[in-house]
Write a protein that binds this DNA or RNA. Structure first.
Lengths: 282, 282
DNA sequence: GACGGCGATACCGCCCGGGTATCGGTGCTG
DNA sequence: CAGCACCGATACCCGGGCGGTATCGCCGTC
């Protein structure tokens, strides 16, 4: 199987439409049909169920979609890591660290300071990304190391070290009746009819259905809470330096959040190893 | 990057010789030279240092070799898992379990029994393989789940559950003076001039250099020890039912061995999940 | 029953991957 | 030191396959 075929199949499986997929790939529709048919012939199985009104995935097709994405990520990672290795050999070596925007601010600052103080430290490019994006960056080679947050992020397939565990707090408008309470139960916060939980975008940019307002970053979130249009449950460290009009109330029965540092297995980078050591020694 | 190019590069990087690599690939040497040159051109870096006497890897080349192997494994896994998904949909679904030949015999038997007793259990193909081969099988899709042994096997990149931990014992000829001792220190066993540790083959079939005899399986090992030509340090469970003339002596300071069950992250197979559950409930 | 949307098929041209022949450089050897 | 053997690169040619356009077959919808 060639990566071209996998890319073609993934495009069709995602669009569920040969025409749109072909457009996305920048080719015409017939070669795309042929390529997928060839894949099916060589695998000896149907991957897509064609009706005259579009396309659906078969069971084998669903498996291949998942596996092909992983394989294409691995190929992309190979290309990117090789490029970066070549760059590091001639120019200035760097490490790319992925972190969720608006999270772990203080920990991140301390980590960068601690690492920079080490002998032989190289430049660290910090990539701030959306929730759940860190794993993708690590998988496809755009990042060398990442800060993840269990249980929200999926750490499967990486080597990790735990850095820090903390409880969660509810962020409420200071004027809200619940904000005077010493602590809250999770159930009390998750279905307040007047203060729905906001909806975060999926990695593809779409939003899940639901009653809450759509938010894209931490600023929007605090603003919406201050306006009395939403509430949120966030790790304690996300409640430092709250703006006027917001209150943080502990939620003891919310799952604890562990910040972990993660890197691809078999990473041979000494810089990543030093960064991990600096992180665990914090 | 196409998988063809990666396969070609890996062949050259492993052989360090364009001619032999071409022969292995079943093509002529000139197209191979061109393909690698094209890869280098597009990556903008030298991957191989050519001298008139053979070839050496550059730093970037070493990175690409490692990454390309992982990527090709992922592509192979995609193909195999799709094939198996198609098979499972029409015929009889199976799970492939990889285990080291001659290890964990009793645990494996109990696991298979426990799983077979569960409702909805599917057929389990047990693949017995050489030391360290299980991870490869899991990576490239030939196996769905494996029994590994820490710290010998590399569990990086898999989800795992610990099953069993045990100490190690030295296997000695009954006539050897040390066999009467109640226990031994590891250092006492590892450099006995009269009983060297045997050499196990690498995954590629070659043997490391050293004084000990070459062995390929457990039978050869016990035979050599009985002949007074070698000794070995193995997990306790590997010493049950020893043949006449062999003695097992505990080695308390040898690292403990943990048998773990491992599977690829993001496995969606219910059969694998049931097998893991049966294993942890043993 | 005509139309429109969608995937498959037919057919064509061209690029690229693979083949043979040969060159250039280098270390070994008598 | 000349000759040689070895190894990778280059030159050149050929054919298959990939991508393009045109068209068909199928079906749901006015």
């Amino acid at each position: 199987m060639e990566t071209r075929e996998l890319r073609y199949f993934v495009a069709v499986a995602e669009e569920l439409h040969f025409g749109r997929a072909a457009q996305r790939l920048g080719i015409a529709q017939p070669p795309l049909s042929r390529a997928v048919a060839g894949l099916e012939r060589r695998l000896g199985t149907l991957l897509l169920e064609r009706s005259s009104r579009g396309v659906t995935l078969t069971g084998a097709g669903a498996v291949l979609l998942r596996e092909a994405r992983a394989a294409l990520d691995a190929v992309e990672a190979a290309e990117r890591r090789t490029r970066r290795a070549a760059l590091a050999a001639t120019g200035h070596p760097t490490v790319v660290l992925a972190a969720k925007a608006g999270a772990s601010g203080e920990l991140l600052a301390k980590l960068l300071d601690a690492y920079a103080a080490e002998p032989g430290a190289v430049a660290v490019d910090v990539v701030l990304c959306g929730p759940g994006e860190q794993a993708r960056l690590l998988h496809d080679g755009r990042a060398d190391v990442a800060l993840l947050h269990r249980p929200f992020d999926d750490t499967a397939g990486f080597d990790t070290e735990d850095l820090h565990t903390e409880g969660q707090v509810a962020i409420l408008p200071a004027a809200h009746p619940l904000s005077a309470r010493p602590h809250l139960r999770l159930a009390e916060v998750t279905d307040l009819p007047d203060l729905p939980l906001p909806r975060w975008p999926h990695p593809d940019g779409t939003f899940p259905d639901g009653p809450g307002p759509q938010v894209r970053d931490h600023t929007q979130l605090t603003q919406l809470i201050a306006l009395g249009r939403a509430c949120a449950v966030v790790p304690e460290s996300g409640s430092t330096g709250l703006r006027e009009g917001l209150t943080a109330v502990p939620v003891p029965d919310a799952p604890h959040v562990t910040t972990v540092i993660a890197w691809p297995p078999h990473s041979h980078s000494t810089a990543v190893a030093a960064l991990v050591r600096a992180a665990t020694d914090l």
